[in-house]
Simulated scan of single mutants.
Amino acid sequence: MKFSLFSVVVLLMIACGTAKSDGNPEETIAQGKEVVCFVYHRFGDDRFASTNVSIDHFKAHLQYLKDHNYQVLTFAEAIQYLKGDGPAQKTAVITIDDGYKSFFENGLPVLREYGFPASLYINTETVGGSDYMTWAQIKQTKDAGIEIGNHTHSHAYFLNQPASSRYKNFEAELQKSQDLIKEQLGEAPVTFAYPYGELDAKMKAIVSEYFEAAAAQNSGVIGASTDLMRCPRFPMSEYYSDPKKFAEKARMHVPEVTVDQKSFMLPAGQETPSLKVTFHNDDLQLDQLQCFVQGGDCAISRDGNKVSVKSETSIANRRRTLYTLTVPDKSGNWYWYSHLWINPEVN
C-alpha cells in the first residue's frame, strides 16, 4: 500500500516525477549544485533557549538571504532543484521541526513578510497539545505555502527500542503520520525529518521506501556527495543564531568526500572513535583544515588528501557528538563537513 500511496502523492505534488533515492546520490544530484538548509524549532519563546531563536535574529536571517539573492525553496522543491538540469544558483531551505505554536504565532508571520516558503515537520501525536499547533493552524500554514512533512507520530527515541520491535514500530508510526496528515490536509508528505536526527541503517532503508528525501541534524551543506536519506541541516537556536554566524553558514560549501563511516552509531568499545575522510576537491588548502568536537578537543592527522580526526577525550558519556571539519579553498571559500556519533546507551 505504501508504494501506491507514494505514487499518488508524487503525481499530485511534483509535475515532473523523479525516482526515489537509491542510496547513490552521485547519480541523482547534479554536480555543482548545493543547498544550505537550516533547522528551527521555537520562535520568540525565551523559555527554551536551546531550541529558540529570537524574532530579531530570524528577521536578520531572512534579510540576509534576500539581500544576497538566495533562492529560498521548500525542502521538497530543493531536492527537485538538485536533481534537475536547470542552472546552479544560491539556494537555501528553512525547516521547522515539531510544530510548536510559537512558529505559527511568531515565525510564520515573518516568513509571510519576506514571501519565503519553508518546510514544517510535525509529530502528529502532539498536534493540538498545549504547546503545539492545531490541525486548523497547520492547514492555514500549508495554505500559506509551507510544506508539511512527516516527523513520525510520537517523536520517540527509536534507537532506545529493542531491535526486535524498533523497525516495526518505526514504520507503523511513519504510516500512521502519513495517513493522519493526508486525512487532515488532503496530501501525504514526500519528505521526512528524523526525530532528534537519530537513525540507523534499517531506519534509513524504511524511510527511503516512503519519501524522496529525509533531513537529519548533523550540520553541513547538501550537494553531490550527500545521501538524500540523511541530509544535513544547520541548527538555529540562541546558541547559534547570531546573524554573523548565520551568514557564515549560509556561505559554506559542501566538499566532495568519501568517509570510512557510513553509520552514525558509536562503534562498540570505542570512546574516542576515528573518522577518516578523503577529500576530492583539488583546490582545498588542507593544511588549513580545522576540526571541532563537541565538548572536547580534536586531534588531526593527514596524509595528502586523506585526513583522520578523533576526539582527544572520551565521547562515550554523550548521546550525540558532532565531529565537524572546515577547510578553505584557494579562493577563500569555506567548506563544511560533519559526522554525528550517536550512543543510544546514554539517555
Rank of each mutant, 00 (worst) to 15 (best):
S164R: 13
T124P: 03
S165C: 04
I122F: 04
P162F: 05
L108Y: 02
K182P: 00
D179K: 13
A144T: 09
L120C: 07
Q178T: 10
H151M: 06
G149C: 07
Q175G: 00
K168G: 10
T126S: 14
Y167H: 10
T152M: 08
I138Q: 06
Y114S: 02
L185N: 06
Q178N: 15
S154G: 12
Y167S: 00
E187R: 15
Y114W: 10
A118K: 01
A156R: 12
V127N: 06
T141Q: 06
Y157Q: 13
N160M: 05
A144N: 04
G115K: 12
Q175H: 09
L185S: 05
F170T: 01
S119K: 00
E183C: 08
K176I: 03
I138G: 07
K168W: 09
P109C: 08
V127K: 07
S154C: 07
L185H: 09
S130A: 15
P117D: 06
P117T: 14
Q175R: 13
Q137Y: 02
E187D: 11
N150Q: 02
G149R: 02
E171I: 04
K176P: 01
H151N: 08
E173G: 01
V110D: 00
P109Y: 11
E171T: 00
I146D: 03
I146S: 02
S154W: 06
F116V: 11
N123F: 12
D179V: 10
I138V: 13
P162G: 07
G129N: 12
L159E: 00
G145F: 08
I148K: 01
